[in-house]
Write a protein that binds this DNA or RNA. Sequence first.
DNA 1: AGAAACTGTATCGGTAGCGATTACGTAATA
DNA 2: TATTACGTAATCGCTACCGATACAGTTTCT
Lengths: 149, 149
Amino acid sequence: MSDSQKFPVAAHALAYLAHKEAFSPDRAVASAELAASVPTNPVVVRRVTAMLGKAGLIGARAGANGGAWLLRPAADITLDTVLRAVHGCANLGVAPPGVKGCPVGARIPDAVRAALIAADAAAAARLSQISVADLLADPAQAQAVLKSA
Amino acid sequence: MSDSQKFPVAAHALAYLAHKEAFSPDRAVASAELAASVPTNPVVVRRVTAMLGKAGLIGARAGANGGAWLLRPAADITLDTVLRAVHGCANLGVAPPGVKGCPVGARIPDAVRAALIAADAAAAARLSQISVADLLADPAQAQAVLKSA
DNA sequence: AGAAACTGTATCGGTAGCGATTACGTAATA
DNA sequence: TATTACGTAATCGCTACCGATACAGTTTCT
């Protein structure tokens, strides 16, 4: 894994729910509407909302007027939680196994693995500073982040 | 992108060169030897060493007794430099475009993009604290990082 | 000079993963 | 009961990567 788009789609969906003020079952938003905003296929949306539901971030109900809604305030949902909910990680590849015979060749993979894990943890830590509510904030903020990076 | 293994392979190759003390052309290591340590195909190794060469991290020479060697002390090569050299990034997906009509649907993608860039920058910053020399250090260090993450 | 070793690159085949789509069973509403 | 909508499985087409082969150019060794 993974060039997966699950995390961006999840973040977008949650931000959309927050914008729609879908905080209770009677304000549920259907997957078709979310899919139209991303844009993507409704099934793709339901695949990620199902994961978000298992993580306790959103509720969902079938049937007419059904759909998904947030179970927490948008400001209380940080993006690292979202990332974990969709089983994502900062992907830099997987450390190759190395050869068993060579002592150094066998030791390097563990060190590389440790570096990859450290990088992933750093990315998650950064995401923990961003909430779904932040995604709806003034675009000037987003621009500032974009330029400083 | 990408699920590419370029970064792990590059890190492994550089660590191997450092271990072999390949600091000058007369101590060059052939791609076949590097490939045997990873393990992978010699061509895969040459693909990444070519990029590392263009980034000024290693030198390479064709011909008998040819191969690759480090152009800098291993302690001066940080892993974020390696990551950039192979055009890698902490991959969390790409922000979907959103729909043009909806004002919020159009704003969210920029915010998501900014978050992805921030996470990538954080991962790179963490990698900048790790050098190739660190990859050869006591495995207890690597274990400590692995467990703390 | 000739043989041998090695890089850099192009190319091809196999494979794996993903998104989009269709389909179906279940659940909730009108 | 008819309709709406979720959750999940199965399938399709696409893309990207790795591994392997091949080849031209370069350097060393005999």
